[in-house]
Write a protein that binds this DNA or RNA. Structure first.
Lengths: 144, 144
DNA sequence: TTTAAATCGGATAGTTTTGTCCTATTAATA
DNA sequence: TATTAATAGGACAAAACTATCCGATTTAAA
């Protein structure tokens, strides 16, 4: 579904949001440990997320990553996915045709439309905050 | 969504089915031209589909690929996808966790379940025959 | 002002996916 | 039986993705 980079990016964003809710700025090292991802690769992804204003980065000693409370509420899963993988999952033809639309559809165009719409709606309606809620209570998990 | 190999594999299967319905056995060269795919790479994918009994291959002069009428009716899109990409699209965690289920779910587990179920049902319910119907009348397309 | 802790960013390496090339094998037909 | 047209399959090459390493830069604090 998503690339590895995107999976790490989503998990990292959720972990940063969770800690930001408690006013804790977190380091790359801590993030990678808590989401069980390769440190240096995660660093690259966080750079990308920072450039796309998904997370805020603070350089220097006592630096790290954080997300403002307003952003945690506003940010949708779709924005994280878009920053890393683009919109090819819920745009673009299921059979890889460049030109595929209602006028010139591939043989499975209609079948894919509804599923991709559902996917897009889910991604656009799921907020970062929403994804943190189960974690605090130990109902959901970010590793293993 | 699918790998390139899978996209080519689906398009190839549909084209072979379409021609088989008119009792035409088709060559690799013709397939690659008609679905706009790299010839040698398509050859590998057809080998794989042949080994998985998705398509029948006939060696030697006047050889090529074909699919029996009964298979065209029976074969589901899911079987083609499974042969090439496996079941990772509608199994496996959206965030890449190895252990992710109703007991130990990732933060988006529930949101993904319904979408992946819809996807699986669509793949399992869509027959190869169904995918050929629009092509004959020029309503659907396999290239561009 | 020096040191230490952190991100940034470029270079590089490994792995997987995608794609190509060439030879062997098969089978129809002249 | 020789030729020709086709798939089969192994080896290789290119590109994309995943991952690592290291020096540069930034900033807090001793």
């Amino acid at each position: 579904m998503f690339s590895k980079a995107c999976e790490y990016g989503i998990r990292a964003s959720i972990y940063i949001a969770l800690q930001s809710l408690e006013s804790r700025r977190v380091s790359l090292k801590e993030i990678a440990e808590e989401i069980n991802s390769p440190v240096a690769f995660t660093a690259k992804i966080l750079q990308l997320l920072s450039k796309n204003n998904i997370v805020d980065s603070v350089k220097g000693a006592h630096g790290g990553f954080e997300i403002s409370r307003t952003q945690i509420d506003k940010l949708k899963l779709s924005e994280i996915v878009n920053a890393i993988d683009g919109n090819t999952i819920y745009e673009g033809c299921g059979l890889g045709l460049k030109e595929c639309n209602a006028e010139k559809p591939c043989p499975v165009h209609d079948k894919f439309v509804s599923i991709r719409n559902d996917l897009r709606q889910m991604l656009e309606n799921t907020s970062l905050y929403e994804m943190t809620t189960g974690l605090e209570m130990g109902v959901t998990f970010l590793k293993r």
